[in-house]
């Protein structure tokens, strides 16, 4: 045994190796690392596609399930690909489109640049793939969505009433084709959400058309316009297709009755009568008090 130690003493490198080995063997971190790697959470990706006035967006929502609840995953990097997961291809303009980081609600929105429509003019069905990869806490996951290239034409006619027409079309290789027998919505943009108008369950006719009459008493925007919208929604195949347009509108929003001088205004907007009464009372009483103080100081001068 003693000879072994002596041998050890002479070999510096062996000493070091032994020490290192002992360190890793005993270090709790060496154990802790392994199960942590195995405990990666499996996230769920939800994709929704939307085209609004020709602008295509893909919204990605990342969450994971815990006790029957979906908990959003914020601050995670999501890559978006077109067609298949690969590097960007200069010739076909396909491939990786970019990446984003989710916000606190686990959501992020990809917006496509204006030249995307030009580049993809002859493609009428898109396949988007969102993927999460090499994240320390979450498993690699990907999700895809395939959508058709749809669009809506919006028009309005004004006489005594304003009638809004919307035509739902689909792009095919042969050109555009109207989509009949499909539910659509006519809406007015509001501060929160959009207000539907026209009949309930508006369905396109043989020409892909729906029409509705704007409620005549609906307040518009302050600049004498109102924002009308047409929306077609089919999350499975087409995503959301939306068109909006400002049209002239004479009904202005109500104006706030700003009562300036009230009991609940700020101090300098107090009701005049209140200010006049209190200020005069204060002047009257403190004037008298000042006189009394003068009297008090005059006592010294009395001979």
């Amino acid at each position: 045994m003693t000879t072994f130690f002596k041998y050890l003493k002479s070999k510096r490198s062996l000493q070091l190796m032994l020490a290192l080995g002992l360190f890793f063997f005993l270090s709790p971190r060496a154990y802790a690392d392994k199960p942590a790697a195995a405990e990666k959470t499996s996230p769920t990706i939800k994709l929704s596609y939307k085209i609004h006035n020709g602008v295509k967006t893909v919204k990605v929502a990342v969450s994971y399930k815990e006790e029957k609840k979906f908990i959003p995953v914020g601050n995670i990097i999501v890559n978006l690909y077109l067609g298949e997961v690969k590097k960007f291809d200069k010739v076909s303009n396909d491939g990786w489109m970019g990446n984003l980081v989710t916000d606190d609600e686990g959501e992020c929105v990809f917006m496509f640049p204006d030249n995307f429509n030009t580049l993809k003019a002859n493609v009428h069905s898109f396949n988007f793939i969102a993927s999460i990869g090499s994240d320390p806490k979450y498993e690699d996951t990907q999700e895809e969505i395939t959508v058709n290239d749809m669009f809506i034409k919006l028009a309005f006619a004004k006489d005594s009433l304003t009638t809004v027409n919307a035509k739902l079309c689909k792009m095919q290789d042969s050109g555009m084709v109207p989509v009949p027998e499909t539910e659509m919505k006519l809406l007015v943009k509001r501060a929160f959400g959009a207000l539907p108008f026209g009949e309930d369950n508006l369905t396109t006719d043989a020409d892909g058309l729906v029409s509705g009459v704007l409620p005549a008493d609906l307040p518009g925007n302050a600049n004498k316009s109102i924002t009308i919208m047409a929306r077609y929604e089919d999350q499975e195949n087409d995503g959301i297709v939306e068109v909006s347009q400002d049209i002239p509108w004479n009904i202005l929003p109500r104006e706030n009755k700003l009562s300036q001088r009230t009991l609940w205004s700020s101090g300098h907007n107090a009701p005049v009568i209140l200010v006049v009464v209190t200020v005069s009372l204060i002047i009257l009483i403190w004037g008298t008090i000042s006189y009394l103080v003068i009297l008090l100081l005059r006592i010294r001068k009395q001979r």
């Binding site: 009394l292 009297l295 008090l296 100081l297 005059r298 006592i299 001068k301 009395q302 001979r303």
Partner: peptide
């Protein structure tokens, strides 16, 4: 306040008390 028991001083005090 420099009180010296003068009649004029008393007069001031009486006046002040009336006002007060």
């Amino acid at each position: 306040f420099g009180w010296t028991n003068k009649k004029a001083q008393y007069e001031i005090v009486v006046k002040a008390i009336k006002i007060l």
